[in-house]
């Protein structure tokens, strides 16, 4: 995330045109791209952009899933059935298609990608969240808390939430990893709008055209992306 505040060079400045396609040498450790931009600075900022946009998208997914769960667990049976039917449609539905569907009537920009990812990963999060919620709702300690007259808020705060929190983190990890992957995929396809945008998928799409001349320029963004995904799996509470 440091990439937002400081990078070795300006990631957008075409300041090193005389060193275009150069390999990894000091001070340009990842090389210089065809437009004379420092590759390390772009990858650094790209990682920050990827993580922050994916984080917002994953939070959006959890918020939407929580809202749908609240609707589904409500009193209306029709509403519950409706929510389950609509969510089940999303299982196996590719995010790329949903992203394209949103592009039909929304601007081609990074914020649209957040919407696409937030909505498309809801089925994945909702189903797991629902199982966890039902498990906690029917747990002996929750029943006991209700039996001694605990209010809904008290039951939620002191019985359900402490037991739900660690498992919620596991769901978030999965959703966050999927969001990183999907964000970079959609921007790789050019759906993020500005092709100069420093995001790992967009950088890969941009550098792909130069892979004959300087293959290392396409290795670094992908390696960093895979490293981020791997690290996401290792996150602990």
């Amino acid at each position: 995330m440091l990439g937002f505040f400081a990078t070795p060079f300006d990631p957008y400045a075409q300041a090193f045109l005389d060193k275009s396609f150069s390999g990894g040498e000091w001070p340009h450790l990842f090389g210089v791209d065809k437009l004379g931009r420092d590759a390390l600075s772009r990858v650094w900022l790209g990682a920050a952009n990827t993580l922050s946009y994916a984080f917002v998208a994953s939070m959006g997914t959890l918020a939407l899933s929580g809202f749908l769960l609240w609707l589904e667990r409500g009193r209306s049976r029709v509403l519950s059935e409706g929510v389950r039917a609509v969510v089940s449609l999303g299982v196996g539905f590719p995010v790329v298609l949903l992203g394209l569907l949103l592009m039909v009537f929304m601007e081609r920009e990074p914020e649209t990608l957040i919407w696409a990812i937030s909505i498309a990963t809801v089925p994945l999060a909702f189903r797991q969240l629902r199982v966890l919620w039902i498990e906690q709702d029917k747990a002996v300690y929750t029943e006991a808390s209700r039996a001694v007259g605990g209010s809904s808020w008290h039951v939620l705060r002191y019985s359900i939430w402490p037991n739900l929190r660690p498992q919620l983190l596991e769901i978030w990890k999965l959703v966050f990893a999927v969001a990183i992957l999907e964000l970079s995929s959609l921007s790789f396809l050019g759906l993020g709008g500005d092709p100069r945008w420093a995001e790992l998928g967009a950088i890969l799409a941009d550098q792909r055209k130069s892979m004959n001349l300087q293959p290392m320029l396409v290795f670094w963004p992908g390696l960093v992306l895979s490293f981020l995904l791997w690290q996401t799996r290792l996150l602990r509470a």
Partner: peptide, 23 residues
């Protein structure tokens, strides 16, 4: 089993192209 969530498919494709196509 976990590879699908760690390595982006488009990067695998690019690496394959560099190794088997370019080099």
């Amino acid at each position: 089993g976990g590879m699908g969530l760690i390595v982006p498919i488009f990067w695998i494709g690019i690496v394959m192209l560099v190794i088997f196509g370019v080099w």
